[in-house]
Design a protein around this nucleic acid. Sequence first.
DNA 1: GAGCACTGC
Length: 796
Amino acid sequence: MKRIAATDIETLGVVSRQNYLKLREERKLQQLKDEVEDDRYLFEEIPLSESEYRRTMYKEEICNLLVANKLDENHNEYYRIPEAFDDLKCAAVNQEKRFSVATQGYYDNHKEEAWEDNQIKKAFCDKKFEFKREITLEKSRAKRLVLNEERKKLPIYAFRDEFLQAVNDHQIIVIVGETGSGKTTQIPQYLHEDGYTKHGRMIACTQPRRVAAMSVAARVSQEMGVKLGHEVGYSIRFEDCTSEKTVVKYMTDGMLLREFLAQPELDSYSVVMVDEAHERTLSTDILFGLVKDVARARPDLKLLISSATLDAEKFSNYFDLAPIFKIPGRRYPVEIQYTKSPEANYLDAAVVTTLQIHATQSPGDILVFLTGQEEIETVEQILKHRVRGLGTKIAELIICPIYANLPTELQAKIFEPTPEGARKVVLATNIAETSLTIDGIKYVIDPGFCKMKTYNPRTGIESLLVTPISKASAMQRAGRSGRTGPGKCFRLYTAYSFQNDLDDNTSPEIQRTNLANVVLTLYSLGIEHEKLLRFEFMDPPPADAIKKAMELLYNLGALNGQGKLTKVGRRMAEFPLDPMLSKMIVASEKYKCSDEIISIAAMLSVGNSIFYRPKDKQVHADNARLNFHSGDVGDHIAYLNVFNSWKETNYSSEWCYENYIQVRCMKHARDIRDQLAGLLERVEIELISNSNDLDAIKKSILSGFFPHAAKLQKNGTYGRVKHLQTVHIHPSSGLAEVVPRLVLYHELVLTTKEYMRQVTEIKPEWLLEIAPHYYQLNDVEDSSSKKMPRGCGLAH
DNA sequence: GAGCACTGC
């Protein structure tokens, strides 16, 4: 192609080269954005299935990659783009070519022609949009007719009148609806049709997951023939898609819990349906207690507890012997096979079983449940190796790993249809148990383990342990094979084990988590002190955990000596964060650095997967990370540096890739930060920046995290101040080599050792200044000048 | 010098 010198361009007098390039970038960006917008539009009009929805999301990410020019060879290897997006890649390349040609023409033909070209383009785009819109409307009309027929075929349709009668007769009903019964989509509609939304009151239906709330709302709006967000809407964090018209509202359970803060009697609702109650999320468990109480105060409020399991008796007993309404499901049979004897190595057994299925069983994809990323990577490698050994005698086996931390572009692979003659094997964590469904799975391999979080209220340590799953969980896993046709489930344990070793149900989250936030929420709902100790939990958490939470809240100044919520506590409760983080924000008012503190809080709550560390580029990734630690500022300030640097690049995705940072996490952090900024206004704390005074920022952090102080001991390890407990700085910390005398940490995790994650150096006098009620002089004195506490002496 | 299941506000 003919090159044009910069001087030529200037003499043409059209645009300066820089301006031209900028214009070109902008147009390219706009074009891509338009495509995504079009897809969004489609999403609004026609409810997407979950896999379609995810594909839309992935497409957006791909567009970001394209914009960030990540399609060149190097990055292609680093962020492999799934084949399904080949068309998009081609389009982008063609687009690029067309731009080049147009560029040439642009200069050759001068301003007018180019302008005309632009006009044509615009007209073309308008036309395309109009056309797409027409098709969409037509499709949606046709779909509505089909949907109406489909509604009548659902198992629940036959029980419609019987169900409405039951709701009329009873205030609380426990619904047992197997998967595919249509309860989630139909029940709110029936109630709406039966007049429960008169008098301006809504029907609420809670879901444990955001995607579920969105896609179900989209589906129902389509069935009812209304625009999503009007009569039917959804409400999830960062996104309220409802209006004054809304009568049927799908929401996450956590969102309803938040709404309780504003309206403790749930005045705007006539019916509350707690769906997927058997999952026993932290939020559902608290909702149970609250909603049961409200039902007593408001006889007109109807309560539906919907669960998929057969232990509905327990729910019924809890809700004062509420009647149980059973709805059959529509499922295919699943044949279950056990091993004859226990397997010594379940990874090996999983590989062997996979290959056996591949060699002997009829077509259909395989889903293997593993406990984590590491196992998945190991099995992937072994499988690849073994398949290579089999040569061409056998059909192709496509291996797809999936876990939550896998970059989004790579996750898309599992939704690609399996090519004719090949077989797909999906290696998944628990994410495939409930959070996402994969079409075409016919065989499930279940080794019977998962990783589970446990919390020790005495030490405050959380740890992830590989644990046997429960019977309920095993059934759920098996059910994943019978979604589109009869399936088979291979359990890598004996039938005896299943009967005798596995618990019936997974212990609810509320029994194995830090309750500080739960207790604060309940306090701000007026459930204080004795009332809280009497709170009707379906499965009460350990008394120790509640006591520990109260103690912490008292130390943070959220509760006073009489066990009442203080003004500080009330402000803290506004933030959807761990109380220590909330306290840190409230304290930032005093140190005039709220701007920096909410950035840090947002980054901390996104968690530990911000820094991406690919196996083959660990050194690069670590070096990139160290750039944010200059001056040994500590991990908290490093997080602040990351966020601010990203902000300075105008939230560039490209910058993230260069620095081995996960874009997804950063976007999430930005969303949280925006929300926190809004909440600051609510609690009347001014947004002030004080970026030069690092001590002020550290003091704010310490105001929330002073119980997490650890000091260096003679033997080089750390000891928690106030607790005789040895801890270590996590090697990923920027301070791991610095070894300061006194530090605060964000969290303590137990892996091979007890590690402090996210560490910042503090001064001893700050402890006395900020927490005189908690620390005494002898706590902060240099440990070397003092006798060693018992049990913490040197080894040997 | 080391490993992080999954959600949600």
